[in-house]
Design a protein around this nucleic acid. Structure first.
Length: 556
RNA sequence: GGACCUGUAGCCUAGCCUGGAUAAGGCGACAGCCUUCUAAGCUGUAAAUCCGGGGUUCGAAUCCCCGCAGGUCCA
């Protein structure tokens, strides 16, 4: 809720008698600031009042007299345009940012949220498509923490599926490290393709595992641990951390899967299909599948992913609010899971789905080796960042600075587009440090930091906001005023790309300001006013970047 | 065959939920701006059948219906 918008809505509501919410809904932003800060289009009133919208606008204008918070109202065709009192607005907004600091825009909510993201199979080095999950998930974690929630980030480790069994089989009798896993994974999969007989060995191995064979369990754990360590190490380097790694096998061995299966069976919806598998009947859930079921076990009695995930999700849900980040390929599966959960008396978690990252050469697939590895993307980004930093005068190279910039660019590239959109990965775009990129935003932040440190920390005395007269200064104020709305919406809709877009426009606005308005000057009062304004902008840029998991650097 | 998502200048995207004034950015192209707070920047120019067709509405990129194309799923 934007207080300024709200004030305008109240005014219109008082004057016309339409409900405040309705007025609020209609209020728009004029295409150019010269036309005002807010507008009320009068079309909707024209039927009720039996008057042309232009006349209504003129009429309303004559009835409304300027007040403390706006300077003038103008009728512009069918629009009633409001011009805010710039000094008053600037004071309100900038003071709020300076007083609240890092918390400016936070809802200061209470509560606990469990976010599960990434949860990739523990097999090999992740590719950039998978990284989309991690980056979106991590940003959601940050966003919710910012708003005051206690958030636990969880990673569900699929340590018991067919793919991992295949990998265990491939690793047998050899000393392999994490870096060897990708080629091993590709090798064993192509071997399987050539000799489908291997599948029998895989299932036999899984059966042994589920029956509790100690040796086999140890064997699995060794491979899984190595992979989880390798994968989480890469994500850790990127600044993506988890609070919990939850192992599928724990749910199996603690008999929780058995418990859930039992509860489902007592609902009378479980039957044994023609292949001898236990299957959950999901008719009546509108699932748009040929046979609406969720397969729970194999014919040999071993569990399938759906059953283990169900046990896991029940466990998660008992801890409170749940969010899970999933690829678009899991959309239907997630609806199946939700249906099964409702049979168990649980609400579905909130799901965030994202589409795949494609390559010009086609789809990414670990199994076929057609991938861009996250690791490679990271090292390319670091290399480029290092080269850029070394070519500059102001910045001194450090590994940390290169990380901030390189990884920032990487994350921003992925998070800035809406999750439902497919993206085609290409190196030139991905490694761009100009335009719509993290370095662009970081650069704006660094410039402000430079100004602040050059000006010294003297922000003494009262600030005369009426000195901020230029159009771009007013724009900057309005953008800062928007931040709480953006941060709220991004959290409510679980859409971090809104923050990315916002940060870009704030940086953009600041850069225009920077070229137009010198902050440090002989005019002490103007200097002070501008200094507070840019300090507020710096704070909001930093907050925005942090919400995306990107560092706000002070020199670059 | 069915379901969901996407289609906006040469290229990448925002806007779509909540309809409103000349459709907003970035890359690329072209023309400019560094003895003044960081040129990873700024200013300007050219560039768009908002996938196509219907409909609803005073008004549609935005809502509804029918197509087309791409992605995903229907063990």
């Amino acid at each position: 809720m934007n207080v300024f918008r709200d004030a305008v809505a109240k005014l219109i509501s008082d004057e016309t008698g339409i409900p405040r919410e309705e007025a609020e809904r209609h209020i728009s932003i004029p295409p150019s600031q010269d036309l005002g800060d807010f507008a009320f289009p009068c079309f909707s009133l024209s039927k009720k009042l039996r008057m042309a919208p232009d006349r209504i606008a003129v009429d309303l204008k004559s009835k409304i007299s300027p007040g403390r918070f706006f300077e003038k109202v103008e009728a512009h065709g069918p629009y009633l345009n409001f011009f805010m009192n710039r000094a008053w607005m600037a004071g309100k907004v900038v003071d709020a940012v300076m007083v609240e600091g890092k918390d400016y825009g936070s809802l200061k909510s209470k509560g606990t949220v469990l976010v599960e993201h990434t949860s990739i199979n523990p097999n090999a080095s992740p590719h950039v498509g998978r990284a989309r999950n991690s980056i979106i998930g991590d940003s959601i974690v940050r966003l919710l923490r910012f708003h005051g929630y206690k958030v636990d980030a969880h990673f569900f480790v699929n340590d018991i599926g067919k793919q991992i069994a295949l990998l265990v089989l491939g690793c047998r009798g050899r000393k392999l490290a994490f870096k060897d896993m990708l080629s091993e994974y590709i090798r064993i999969n192509s071997e399987l393709e050539a000799d489908p007989g291997i599948e029998r060995d895989v299932f036999a191995l899984l059966k042994k595992l589920e029956d509790g064979d100690k040796e086999v369990r140890k064997e699995f754990r060794q491979v899984v641990e190595m992979c989880v360590k390798g994968q989480s190490g890469i994500l850790y380097e990127l600044g993506i951390r988890f609070d919990c790694f939850d192992y599928e096998s724990d749910y199996l061995f603690s008999r929780k899967t058995g418990e859930v299966l039992g509860r489902l069976e007592s609902s009378g919806k479980v039957f044994v299909d023609a292949e001898g598998r236990k299957v959950l009947n999901l008719e009546g859930f509108n699932l748009d599948m040929k046979s609406p079921v969720l397969v729970l076990t194999r014919a040999d009695g071993t569990s399938l992913y759906g059953l283990r995930d169900l046990a896991y999700t029940v466990d998660k849900l008992s801890k409170g609010r749940n969010i899970v980040v999933l690829g678009e390929d899991h959309k239907l599966y997630f609806r199946q899971l939700s249906a099964a959960l409702s049979l168990l008396g649980f609400p579905a978690p909130e799901a965030v789905h994202y589409s795949f990252v494609l390559l010009a050469s086609g789809k990414m697939s670990t199994r076929s080796g057609n991938v861009v590895l996250l690791e490679d993307f990271m090292s390319q980004a670091l290399e480029k960042a290092e080269a850029e930093i070394r070519g500059r005068k102001k910045a001194r190279f450090s590994k940390q600075l290169a990380r901030s910039i390189g990884y920032g660019a990487l994350k921003y590239h992925i998070i800035k587009v809406s999750p439902e959109k497919n993206v085609t990965f290409d190196w030139d775009h991905a490694l761009s440090f100009e335009g719509e990129s993290a370095p662009y935003i970081q650069y704006a932040h660094a410039r402000i930091a430079g100004i602040i440190s050059k000006a010294g920390h003297s922000k003494k005395g009262k600030v005369d906001y009426s000195l901020l007269k230029t159009s771009v200064e007013h724009e900057l104020v309005k953008l800062l005023a928007d931040f709480p709305d953006v941060a709220e919406k991004a959290a409510l809709q679980l859409r971090p790309h809104l923050i990315a877009n916002y940060a870009q426009s704030l940086a953009d606005c600041f850069n225009r300001f920077y070229h137009e308005c010198p902050v440090i000057s002989d005019d002490h009062d103007l200097s002070t006013a501008r200094l507070v304004l840019v300090s507020a902008a710096r704070q909001v840029l930093e907050t925005s970047l942090n919400l995306l998991g990107i560092e706000a650097v002070r020199k670059m």
